[in-house]
Design a protein around this nucleic acid. Structure first.
Length: 501
RNA sequence: GACCUGGUAGCUCAGCUGGUAGAGCAUUACACUUUUAAUGUAAGGGUCCUGGGUUCGAAUCCCAGUCAGGUCACCA
């Protein structure tokens, strides 16, 4: 049943031999280090005695001496072992080198090294090891990635996407560039958080389990609460809860919200994804555009120093009404168009349409297919048709439009924002209209319309501007990755079949 | 959901029109005291994704399934 490869069997045997020699392959004691490898390399001091711990990544034997490379969370350093100088707790000089190190330690093992620093003939900072401690035995062989340091060329990279995603831990051990993506991801989020905190906005937590999944239109994941005896849904958005907090008197709230949508998966959709939602009282969508510009510029400066992108972050970002954009790229003026004529336009543009798609939906579809890809530099697309924005205020001057913008960068939607609708009566009728469009009958109203949210609005919500920024997409943009899976530690995968590997 | 491409040793990959399964790294053994994609010699290692079919004979051809990637569709 348990099929082991030759290499796995050999490593398990080594485990037994270690135990026979009185060496615990998984010791409990704290292992004291004197610093991280990166610090040690930065502050190199000839002959300084240091102690480090990490994973053995490579090994080169040369008879009575040999070289290994150890990697910790910061960097990799070369270790020089020689027969004459190496000892371990359970073994003397010679045996430590010839038996412990040579026969029982493998690439992938986590070890501790004590020794002093020097530079080799090749001028590489190296630890001359005196003491070797096994901290954790690895019984599965690590993929051997070879790096030619002269030109930084990688050979035999661990590159199978499926294996990389399924065994992300291996991916992280072996592929430094992968680790860097996630370090960048965290730094981007920290940067945004600091930026918002500095402005005095409050980070909050709102429910992930909701009895009415509101704030967006999407198929939710369904679950069930045993004690309450009711269905619950994983949130598809947190918007309605953040607005309740604005009603409650906070002037600015935000949340890095993990949202869940039970829909298709592809290179830009994962069932769970992260959106930064931010709501600020007494502002409108014009203010939010200015704010977004500054925030994005600040992040861009921090994370794109190399200027490798061909994206120009010159402010102010252009602000283009969606209908103007469509006019520019298709030649059709849709401002006062009737639904029938709009369908004809779709045919002329070779765009699929069906009866289930509303007028607003068709307009949006045309934009996505014909226009979106043309905006490489950051651009605000503004003033969307009112029907497709049920939570947005009607435009103060343009009757059938709403005060909404999307930020497009590199042909992709990065953010979606609007002047929040705060008229409770209008809100209820818009949600009903939305419900009708999506084919639900009125009997289901109590199941699909969040009446408590309407009640909250009835108490009065200040005029508010809100924005959602797709964090995964933003990280993709800043790390130049074309799939969302590359910026998520553990992207959703189909389960592996009966114990393959 | 549709179509295209792929799944062979721990990893990266060859394997032609069907004829005993290959390489490099890794592993094991030996040699080697400043190497760095270390080197040299030798050895071991395979459910060729799964299940059917065609055939004297299938990693290879056909069908179905499965997993991944890509393109499209769906998705505020």
């Amino acid at each position: 049943m348990l099929h082991l490869s030759e290499q796995q069997i050999i490593r398990r045997k080594k485990l037994d031999k270690l135990k026979l020699l009185g060496i615990n392959p998984y010791p409990s004691e704290e292992y004291i280090i004197t610093g991280s490898i990166l610090d040690i390399k930065k502050n190199f001091l000839e002959k300084e005695i240091i102690s480090i711990a990490g994973r053995l990544m490579r090994f080169r034997f040369l008879g009575k001496a040999s070289f290994g490379e150890i990697k910790d969370h910061t960097d990799c350093i070369q270790i020089y072992f020689s027969e004459k100088n190496l000892f371990s707790e359970k073994m003397g000089i010679k045996d430590t080198y010839n038996i412990f190190l040579k026969k029982l330690i493998d690439i992938g093992d986590i070890i501790g090294i004590t020794g002093f620093l020097f530079k080799t003939k090749m001028n590489e900072i190296t630890i001359r090891a005196h003491k070797l401690t096994l901290l954790s035995k690895s019984i599965r062989p690590l993929p051997q990635v070879k790096v030619d340091k002269k030109n930084n060329k990688i050979y035999d990279a661990f590159s199978n996407t499926e294996q990389r995603y399924r065994m992300r831990y291996v991916d992280l051990i072996v592929n430094d560039h992968v680790k860097n993506i996630f370090l960048t991801r965290t730094r981007i989020i920290q940067k945004i958080r600091n930026y918002l905190d500095d402005k005095g906005y409050l980070e909050v937590d709102t429910p992930v389990l909701q009895s009415i999944p509101g704030g967006a239109i999407a198929r939710p994941f369904e679950t069930y609460h045993n004690t309450l005896g009711i269905p619950l849904y994983l949130r598809i958005a947190n918007e309605l809860y953040l607005k309740r907090l604005i009603i409650g008197g906070f002037h600015g709230v935000y949340e890095f919200s993990k949202n869940f949508r039970n829909e298709g998966m592809d290179r830009i959709h994962n069932p769970e994804f992260t959106v930064l939602e931010l709501y600020i009282a007494y502002k409108d969508y014009y203010w939010m555009m200015d704010f977004t510009e500054k925030l994005m510029k600040c992040i861009w400066k921090e994370f794109q120093k190399e200027e490798e992108h061909n994206i120009n972050f010159k402010t102010p970002f252009p602000r283009i009404p969606i209908l103007d954009s469509i006019k520019k790229y298709t030649g059709f003026d849709l401002e006062k168009i009737k639904e029938e004529d709009l369908r004809k336009v779709c045919h002329k543009l070779n765009i699929e349409e069906n009866r289930n798609m509303s007028k607003a939906k068709l307009i949006e579809h045309i934009f996505e297919v014909k226009c979106e890809k043309n905006y490489n530099d950051p651009t605000f697309i503004i003033d969307y048709p009112i029907e497709m924005s049920p939570l947005t205020k009607r435009h103060r001057h343009k009757k059938d439009l709403s005060e909404r913008f999307e930020l497009i960068i590199n042909g992709q939607e990065i953010a979606n924002a609007y002047s929040e609708l705060n008229d409770p009566i209008d809100q209820l009728s818009r949600l009903r209209e939305q419900m009708r469009l999506s084919g639900n009958n009125e009997k289901n109203e109590s199941l699909s319309i969040d009446q408590d949210f309407i009640r909250a609005l009835e108490f009065g919500m200040p005029p508010t501007a809100g924005i959602g920024i797709g964090i995964d997409r933003l990280v993709m943009l800043l790390t130049k990755k074309s799939s969302i899976q590359e910026v998520l530690f553990f992207p959703q995968m189909r389960p592996e079949k009966n114990g393959k590997k």
